[in-house]
Structures are given as C-alpha cells and as structure tokens.
C-alpha cells in the first residue's frame, strides 16, 4: 500500500506523504493510493549507478527499468519496473504498484 497525502483545497495528491501541500503550504490528510495504474513514462538504467549511494542486488548489477506510474488519484509515482520482458515495456502499459522496503516497485499486469 502506497501511503500518500492529499490537499483537499488544491486537489493535490503526493507520494510519499508530506505534512504540507507543495502547492499551497496548508496541512494535508493521509491517503492510500490505488495499487493499479498505467505507465506514464519509462527508461532503462543501462549501466551500474555510482556506489554509494547505489547498493547493487546480491547477484550484481543488471540493467533495470524505471518509470512513473500514473494513478487514479492524479499523481504519478516513480517506481522500479520489474519485468521479465523488457521489450514489452511501453507507455500506457497497465501496471500494479506496491510499496517495498525500498522505492515503490511496479509489475506489468497480464492482459487478456
């Protein structure tokens, strides 16, 4: 579950949750974001990012996709995209997004 925050006055939703609305500076209320959205944009990280701050996974660095997932709450959330088929990544791809111990991670939803 992605824990965001919402400003009713501005109809602005942000992730991660913030105490103040970045648009008007007023207080916000917590909101749980939808778990399903569409891929708004993406790229592939082709080389190992510099360490620190990057910590490669136990098996070593392998190229990975990142993108923004657009959710019905009118917010686009940055996420690592986990997929076995990088060639199938495209804008507007339906994805499921979830919170993790690290950054949010998204996976394509099988269609049909």
């Amino acid at each position: 579950m992605l824990a965001g925050s919402h400003c009713a006055a501005c109809a602005v939703t942000v992730y991660p949750a913030a105490g103040q609305c970045p648009r008007c500076g007023q207080g916000t209320s917590p909101v749980t974001l939808s778990a399903v959205g569409t891929l708004w944009t993406w790229t592939v990280q082709r080389y190992a990012p510099k360490s620190p701050p990057y910590v490669p996974p136990p098996g070593g660095f392998r190229p990975f996709a990142v993108g923004y997932v657009e959710l019905p709450e009118r917010v686009r959330v940055a996420a690592v995209l986990d997929t076995a088929d990088p060639d199938a990544i495209r804008i507007d791809l339906p994805v499921r997004i979830e919170a993790t111990a690290g950054v949010p991670r998204a996976t394509p939803i099988e269609e049909g």
């Binding site: 790229t43 701050p53 910590v55």
Partner: peptide
C-alpha cells in the same frame, strides 16, 4: 529517502530519458 539512492534512482540521465521518452 535514502532508498532512492540505494535502489539506483539518483541518476540524472534517467530523468532526461524519461522526459524525452514521454
């Protein structure tokens, strides 16, 4: 959050790639 660095998202080229891709 430190996770953005740890998980490999503190990379400027990603931003450029994602903006022009869209």
């Amino acid at each position: 959050d430190e996770a953005y660095g740890r998980d490999g998202l503190m990379v400027t080229t990603q931003f450029f790639g994602m903006k022009i891709n869209r």
